[in-house]
Design a protein around this nucleic acid. Structure first.
Length: 278
DNA sequence: CTCCTGTCCTGCCGGC
DNA sequence: TGCCGGCAGGACAGGA
């Protein structure tokens, strides 16, 4: 489910609930997530204060006062909820983690598929640790340009769609926004990544930035699972051009009909008139 | 190195 | 109504 815009909107609405609060108690129901949570998770987290929150790619980073970084990934179906302290810990099916906070609220992670994770890294060198050490640039970063993208795609034989999904090439892009950005840039998803020219890389970098900024402003895309911690849905789904639009007429009024095909076991959607294979 | 395939897990939807 | 196959927004290991 959650790509960069969804993760960022979750982080933003979570931040005021967490920052400067103390984690008075942690309860773990299931540790066997995509990455297994450490056995001493509860004791490492309990008593720590939350200094701040940030995001890298699709990960939410919760900076603790005790030299640890709590790293949360929502996988495909993960949600973070803020509930009153009086709520039962195991209230809903697939509630796996609860953090009791000073101030009378709890943060609960719910994830039916358990593709998500919560883990702890050392704060001082988290950027050198596993998922982050090789991760590509942030598409919303000031230094993310067509030139940078072109450089990272150079020499790649694989198709541009799967390259965009590779977190080590660009961070935070998932299936929806990869399809949408390629459409906006007028690039066919099956093109070889290394064959893009400068103008195409410029358009693609710009499209990624603009789409993600707009999606964040809309609270992300809710197709199914994604909800903000207060239960609200993201509204960017109304603005999608090609994703899950198979058979519909292209929004560019070119007369083309949106096609669906599978690349790397993932559905791709595109307009055959606006995105030429060449 | 690079790239592709299969797999982890549960829920939902459509077809019969 | 019930069962079954297919599909889902992600990431990683393993092998070619």
């Amino acid at each position: 489910m959650p790509e960069l815009p969804e993760v960022e909107t979750v982080r933003r609405s979570l931040a005021p609930e967490l920052e400067n609060r103390k984690i008075t108690r942690a309860v773990v129901r299931r540790r066997d997530m995509r990455v297994r949570a450490p056995e001493n998770f509860e004791s490492l987290v309990s008593g720590a204060a939350v200094r701040g929150t940030t995001r890298r790619g699709k990960y939410i980073l919760i900076e603790l006062s005790n030299e640890r970084m709590l790293v949360v990934h929502l996988g495909m179906s993960g949600r973070l909820k803020i509930v009153p302290a009086s709520t039962d810990y195991l209230e809903e099916k697939h509630d796996h983690l609860a953090l009791e906070l000073s101030g009378g609220a709890k943060m609960i992670m719910n994830d039916p598929r358990r593709f998500g994770s919560f883990q702890l890294l050392r704060r001082e060198n988290w950027t050198q640790e596993k998922p982050f050490a090789a991760m590509g640039p942030e598409p919303l970063g000031a230094d993310f340009t067509g030139v940078v993208l072109l450089e990272r795609l150079a020499g790649r034989a694989r198709n541009i769609k799967s390259a965009l999904l590779d977190q080590n090439i660009v961070a935070g892009v998932g299936n929806i926004y990869a399809c949408e950005a390629l459409f906006k840039a007028g690039i066919h998803p099956a093109r070889a990544a290394g064959d893009l020219n400068r103008a195409e890389a410029d358009r693609l970098a710009r499209a990624l930035r603009e789409i993600m900024e707009e999606a964040i402003a809309c609270g992300g895309t809710t197709l199914k699972d994604h909800k903000l911690p207060d239960g609200e849905r993201g509204r960017y789904g109304e603005k999608l051009s090609v994703y899950a639009k198979e058979g519909e007429l292209c929004v560019n009024k070119c007369g083309g009909e949106i096609q669906r095909f599978v690349q790397s076991q993932r559905a791709s959607y595109y307009c055959p008139r606006c995105q030429r294979e060449r």
